[in-house]
Write a protein that binds this DNA or RNA. Structure first.
Lengths: 132, 132
DNA sequence: TTGATATATTCTAATATGGGTATATATTTA
DNA sequence: TAAATATATACCCATATTAGAATATATCAA
């Protein structure tokens, strides 16, 4: 199975850098049409329309019809779940005390534990499997 | 081209609900080994190890070797970019005044614009393409 | 009406993804 | 030393994703 659909989840919708750019561009509160977004992003128009489609489906942006143009504006409410989730962790980089506490607890637990040197240092196999 | 790699970007890493569960589970600051995470998540062990691998690569979790076990703990620093980004939009749901201002500006701009009824109300084609 | 413009959609291809299963490695225990 | 245990990795598969090209639709302008 693949990752949860990008169109059903705000987290996935804003996981795409270009879509975050779109959100940032609309963060002023102003409306912009697709052409303006195309110029700003430097992407082909269909790509921009598709990204807008994703953001529209999760409700992060709202389109207004204005003649042959579509004016897009941010609908920030839909970003709130992301904010609420990440806020849980705010204390880790604001509250100095809790950081120190954590370090202490961690140390106590580590007892005989050895640190794994690097996050990406992998355990190498002596042989690779090519069969099956 | 496919989506940006999940292993190169914190936003993508936490876009996956199971990985957010892992992060939440480690949010207490305590260390947990893989078996504990397997029990907590109710996923097969290889799936959990793979999710941990993704989180490790972006640095959101750090593993400590303890005998044959790996103790995982949160490395919250790496979540900060997500926090910093989403915080830009905090004003939208905390500052009442700015919301009103935005609504007013929006209204002024809308002039002759007609609202597109629903975000997912698509424009339907009279014919679908099957050729080419 | 005809052509131009703005936007959305379809199709295709290349790649990434997550779960499942099997298995490799490392460590502990008998 | 041989099992057992804990964890990571490889492989497969079904699906999702993105960019790109072509084109459909709607509206505007001449």
């Amino acid at each position: 199975m693949a990752r949860a659909s990008t169109t059903s989840d705000v987290f996935n919708a804003v996981a795409e850098p270009r879509r975050r750019e779109i959100v940032d561009f609309l963060a002023s509160g102003d409306e912009h049409d697709v052409t303006e977004l195309v110029l700003h992003l430097g992407l082909p128009q269909p790509a921009v329309s598709k990204h807008l489609g994703v953001l529209r489906k999760v409700g992060v942006v709202v389109a207004t019809k204005a003649g042959q143009r579509r004016l897009y504006r941010l609908n920030p409410q839909e970003l709130k779940p992301v904010h609420d989730w990440i806020q849980h962790f705010e204390r880790f980089w604001t509250d100095q005390l809790s950081s120190i506490k954590q370090a202490a607890e961690r140390k106590a637990k580590q007892r005989a534990a050895q640190a794994v040197t690097a996050p990406d240092k992998q355990i190498h196999f002596k042989e690779k499997r090519h069969d099956r």
